[in-house]
Each structure stands twice: as structure tokens, then as C-alpha cells.
Amino acid sequence: NITNLCPFDEVFNATRFASVYAWNRKRISNCVADYSVLYNFAPFFAFKCYGVSPTKLNDLCFTNVYADSFVIRGNEVSQIAPGQTGNIADYNYKLPDDFTGCVIAWNSNKLDSKVGGNYNYLYRLFRKSNLKPFERDISTEIYQAGNKPCNGVAGFNCYFPLRSYGFRPTYGVGHQPYRVVVLSFELLHAPATVCGPKKST
């Protein structure tokens, strides 16, 4: 009989979020998941679920829940969905086509923008091939755009693969920082350890 609540607040209220190319993952297990707390949290810009209804989450049990978190621009949030393409979905964070879970995003301009620009948040701009679902690539190898080998030196046709967002408070909404948490639900042939409040007695 599990009684402790799942530590969703640790994920959602973290002081610093990860850059999207180096997205953070927390495994959540052996706890009671009260999703209504999240669902009623006012400032969400997006709360979209795939393969599961957000209002039914509290009735369900899962083997594991993974909480992935990172920061992207407002106009990139739409790429955090199954079957998407674009710089983020291709080179930074890719969801599987059969994704079961929820994508939760909110504007973090007050936290993550600075006058003069916040350059701490990076994304991958160049990559030889697209990421596989949930693949994480933190390499900083110089990207070779031409035929000539770069030998690890940036220059003509040789690019550092990461780019900084440089968030400023005055940017338009599409270019403002958004914090994103992706909850993915794993249902294995194993005992369920993460259940909603109704199922955990």
C-alpha cells in the first residue's frame, strides 16, 4: 500500500531547467500520482495528452512514469508532439509516433530571460542525422557541412553544433522561453508502482 505522493513538484518547480539538447529525465516510481494538482495549476500554456485522457489519469496505474524537462522557445512547443519535424524534434528531443503521455508547457519569461540576454539555454542546430525517439545527444563535436574534414576547428563550413537562445524579456511570445515537462507513461508486464489516488488503496 503506497502512500507517499509522487515528487512532481520537484520537477515542475525546479529552480533551473535543462537546455533542450541535454534534456533532463527523472524516473518516478513507487508513489501516488495526483495529476489533478498539475491539471489545476493555472499558468499552463499547453497540457496535451496522447493515448490517454488527462482527466482519467487519476484512475490509472503505470509501471513507471518518466518526467523529461527542458526549455525551448514558445514557437517550438508545437514540435513536442508525435510525428513532428523541425530543429527541436529532429536534433534535440524526439517523441515516438506511438507516444503515451502528456506534454505540459508554460511561459517562463520572468524566470529564464535576462536584460542583455540569458545565454545559458542551448539547443542543437546541426546534426548529421535525426534523433531516434528519446535519444539524447550531448556531443559538442564540430559539425562538418562541406567535404573538408574540420579536425575539431570551427570555421568555413565547420560549425559548433550548439546555439544559444539568448532570451531577453522584451522578445515577442514566440521567442520567449517556455518550460516543458513531458510525462511518459510506461506500461510493462510488471507490477504497477505509480497509481492515481483512487487506485492506491
Rank of each mutant, 00 (worst) to 15 (best):
Y39E: 15
K132R: 13
P197E: 14
S108K: 02
Y121P: 07
P7Y: 08
R27H: 12
S53M: 10
G172I: 00
A89W: 02
T201A: 14
G196C: 10
N147H: 07
F167N: 00
L57M: 10
Y66E: 06
L187E: 12
P96H: 05
E10Q: 12
L60D: 09
P7H: 10
Q79P: 01
P149S: 07
A14I: 06
Y39N: 15
L183Y: 02
Q84F: 06
K26S: 08
F70R: 02
S113T: 04
R124N: 00
C102M: 07
A22W: 07
R25G: 00
C150G: 00
G196M: 10
T15G: 09
F126Q: 03
C195A: 12
G146P: 00
F185S: 03
Y39C: 07
G196L: 10
A42F: 11
K110L: 07
G172S: 00
S69D: 03
T63I: 09
G101W: 02
E76V: 05
R168Y: 03
N75F: 15
L131M: 08
L188I: 12
K198H: 14
V173A: 12
G86W: 03
I104H: 05
A22E: 11
L57F: 08
N147R: 06
K110P: 07
C49E: 00
E135H: 09
Y159G: 00
S164P: 13
P54E: 14
T55C: 06
K148H: 13
S129V: 12
I72T: 05
I28W: 15
G86I: 01
I142C: 04
I28R: 04
L57N: 06
K48S: 08
G83L: 09
D98V: 09
R168I: 02
D68V: 03
E186R: 09
N30T: 08
K148L: 12
N30E: 09
L122K: 13
K56V: 09
V103Q: 00
Q84I: 08
G172A: 00
Y21D: 01
A105N: 08
P161Y: 03
I104E: 00
R27C: 10
V32T: 13
S78R: 12
S69K: 04
T170P: 03
Y165D: 02
I2E: 14
A46W: 12
S184T: 15
S36P: 07
F12A: 06
F134Y: 15
R25L: 02
I2R: 14
N157H: 02
F167E: 00
K26H: 09
N4M: 10
F134D: 07
A14G: 08
S53A: 12
Y66W: 12
S164K: 09
Y50T: 04
P43G: 09
T63C: 08
Q144V: 09
Y21P: 04
G155D: 06
L95F: 03
N13L: 08
F126M: 10
G174P: 07
D34W: 05
K198S: 14
C102Y: 03
T85V: 10
A67V: 11
N130H: 14
T140S: 14
N64P: 10
R16G: 08
L95W: 01
Y143M: 06
V115C: 05
Y178R: 03
E186F: 07
R27D: 10
Y35V: 12
Y93H: 01
V103K: 01
D9P: 08
R127N: 04
E141Q: 11
I138W: 07
G166A: 12
C31Y: 06
L111M: 14
G155E: 06
T63M: 09
Y171N: 00
L38N: 03
F12Q: 04
V37Y: 15
A22L: 07
P133R: 05
N120M: 12
G174M: 11
L131Q: 02
G166Y: 04
P177N: 01
L125V: 06
N87P: 15
C102D: 01
W23G: 01
Y165C: 00
C158T: 02
G146N: 04
G101K: 01
G51K: 12
K56A: 13
V52P: 06
T201Y: 15
S29G: 11
L122N: 10
Y119S: 09
D137N: 03
N151A: 12
N107T: 05
N30G: 10
K132P: 07
C102T: 02
S200C: 13
N87F: 15
K56E: 14
L183H: 01
